[in-house]
Simulated scan of single mutants.
Amino acid sequence: METLDIKINKMKQYINTKDISAINKLKLSVIKDNNKYNLNEDDFKYIDEYNYYVKFLRNLKRYIKSNDKKNIIIKEYKDNLDRLMYIIISIDINTISVGIPVNIQTLSGSKNKAYMECVYYQYKERSSLYINNFRAIKSKKGYGRKILINLKDIIRDINKVLKENNLKEVKIIEGLLVADENIISEKDLRNLYKKYGFIIDNQNNISINL
């Protein structure tokens, strides 16, 4: 019988390799209180970590299934607790709406997450990514910050997909600063944007050149 630490390492390998086909075949279940008696004593210290990675992979399977018609970019990072996590990007190249929806979000085994809902617009003189909505489930968990600190790197990968589809690269990110006061104050959100290089005008328009 495999110990939990061995199972955890196997799940981490799947996450590292990003082998979606193999991940979709996995059958995973969290360890609940009523079935802990099946474990060896040494396994108890790994239960929380094991459940985290099970939930991570299950969340990933659901995400891929619901976005299977879109271009998907997966980027691996670590969260504030040194656990593996993804920033995952979907680009709906084949949309029939004005602009191309681009969604950026954190994906992990935690209920906490951040997401940035954007639209790509191509103009004659330039192309831009407009942020329609930037939210975190809870503040000060590091997920929104994780997106912002890696945003230019994320845009480089988005630009690769755009170029492959004969579209212009994103040269500027724009949006409107709107804080959900139940999660973060406008002052704190303003400071967060400024910390990562955004310019904010007196009408709360935000922008950053790439």
Rank of each mutant, 00 (worst) to 15 (best):
146 K>N: 04
146 K>Y: 00
189 L>N: 02
132 N>A: 08
162 L>H: 03
128 S>M: 13
127 S>M: 06
164 E>D: 08
182 N>R: 09
158 I>P: 02
184 I>A: 05
192 L>T: 12
176 L>Q: 14
159 N>L: 05
181 E>R: 02
154 I>K: 00
154 I>P: 05
193 Y>L: 08
183 I>S: 00
180 D>H: 05
160 K>R: 09
191 N>K: 06
131 I>P: 03
145 R>S: 12
168 K>N: 11
170 V>S: 01
130 Y>N: 13
166 N>D: 02
125 E>N: 10
126 R>K: 15
192 L>Q: 12
141 K>H: 13
179 A>S: 12
147 I>T: 10
151 L>I: 15
174 E>C: 10
149 I>L: 08
160 K>V: 11
154 I>S: 04
127 S>H: 08
192 L>S: 12
156 R>F: 15
160 K>S: 08
154 I>A: 07
174 E>R: 11
133 N>K: 10
149 I>F: 12
191 N>C: 06
163 K>D: 07
171 K>I: 08
170 V>M: 00
141 K>C: 13
148 L>S: 03
187 K>L: 10
145 R>Y: 14
125 E>V: 07
145 R>W: 07
135 R>N: 12
165 N>L: 02
154 I>G: 07
174 E>W: 06
154 I>E: 02
189 L>Y: 05
144 G>W: 05
190 R>L: 09
188 D>I: 10
163 K>W: 04
136 A>M: 11
149 I>Q: 13
180 D>Y: 00
130 Y>H: 15
129 L>N: 03
125 E>S: 13
185 S>F: 01
193 Y>V: 07
166 N>P: 00
191 N>D: 11
157 D>Q: 14
135 R>H: 04
182 N>Y: 06
164 E>A: 07
149 I>G: 05
151 L>T: 10
192 L>N: 05
127 S>L: 07
184 I>W: 04
158 I>V: 07
163 K>F: 09
174 E>L: 11
187 K>Y: 14
148 L>F: 10
178 V>G: 07
172 I>F: 13
142 G>L: 08
179 A>T: 10
152 K>F: 15
156 R>K: 14
167 L>P: 00
178 V>W: 03
127 S>V: 08
161 V>A: 03
143 Y>V: 01
174 E>A: 07
140 K>L: 11
134 F>N: 07
166 N>R: 03
143 Y>L: 01
178 V>Q: 08
156 R>T: 13
129 L>R: 05
148 L>Q: 02
185 S>L: 07
144 G>I: 03
170 V>T: 01
169 E>G: 05
128 S>D: 12
176 L>M: 10
178 V>C: 01
141 K>Y: 15
166 N>E: 04
166 N>C: 00
129 L>W: 00
142 G>P: 03
142 G>R: 00
165 N>I: 05
133 N>H: 09
176 L>N: 12
148 L>W: 01
178 V>K: 13
161 V>S: 03
151 L>H: 09
128 S>L: 14
